[in-house]
Amino acid sequence: MVNLAFYLLMNKQIIITASVFGMLAVIAGAFGAHGLKAYLDATQLEVWHTAVQYQFYHVFALLFLSTFAHTKNRLINASYYLFTLGIVFFSGSLYLLACRDLIGLSWLWIMGPITPIGGLLFIIGWATLAMAAFKSK
């Protein structure tokens, strides 16, 4: 009974996480298209757009994961954490990099190496999801 409660809670947690990241992606997309257009150059706007795009891709991946969260599968849980951290590292660092000159923090160029770490987390998350599917009955 405890295991069932844990997995139902995990499912709820995944859906809430996806909903919050989805809402933030819509806000970030609209803000980039309307609020930042006059302040960022084309390259910076493209970086912002890439962050929004990958955030959305992984929101959908999280929602997909929620359909499996009721199963007793640690690989699904691992995928959840990998995708979530991937969004924070990959998209988060790109948002900061795109706006570093605008917010007056040009030293944020040091965030550059964080982006590929986020990308690696995404890749491992997808591989983990594939392993979960392969091992499922």
Rank of each mutant, 00 (worst) to 15 (best):
M1P: 10
M1W: 10
V2R: 15
L4Y: 14
A5Q: 15
L9E: 12
M10T: 10
N11E: 15
I14E: 00
I15V: 15
I16S: 08
I16L: 12
S19C: 14
M23L: 15
L24W: 12
V26G: 10
A28S: 11
A28I: 04
G29M: 01
G29A: 05
G29D: 07
F31L: 11
F31V: 10
G32V: 01
G35L: 04
G35S: 06
L36C: 04
K37C: 00
A38M: 08
L45H: 12
E46Q: 12
W48H: 08
A51R: 00
A51E: 01
V52K: 06
V52G: 03
Q55E: 06
Q55C: 03
F56A: 13
V59W: 05
F60C: 11
L62E: 09
L63W: 12
L63R: 09
F64M: 13
F64G: 15
F64W: 13
L65F: 04
L65P: 05
S66M: 06
S66F: 05
T67K: 15
T67P: 08
T71G: 11
T71H: 14
N73Y: 11
R74Q: 06
R74N: 09
R74E: 00
I76V: 14
I76T: 10
S79G: 07
L82A: 05
L82G: 01
F83L: 05
T84W: 03
L85F: 14
G86I: 09
F89V: 00
F90D: 02
G92L: 02
S93K: 02
S93P: 00
L94W: 02
Y95W: 04
L102N: 04
L102M: 07
G104P: 02
G104Q: 07
L105F: 10
S106N: 12
W107A: 11
M111E: 09
M111P: 00
P113R: 06
P116W: 07
I117G: 05
G118H: 09
G118K: 05
G118T: 02
L120G: 13
L121F: 08
F122E: 04
I123E: 04
G125N: 08
W126V: 05
A127K: 07
A127P: 01
A127D: 03
T128M: 09
M131W: 13
M131F: 12
M131D: 01
A132P: 11
A132W: 07
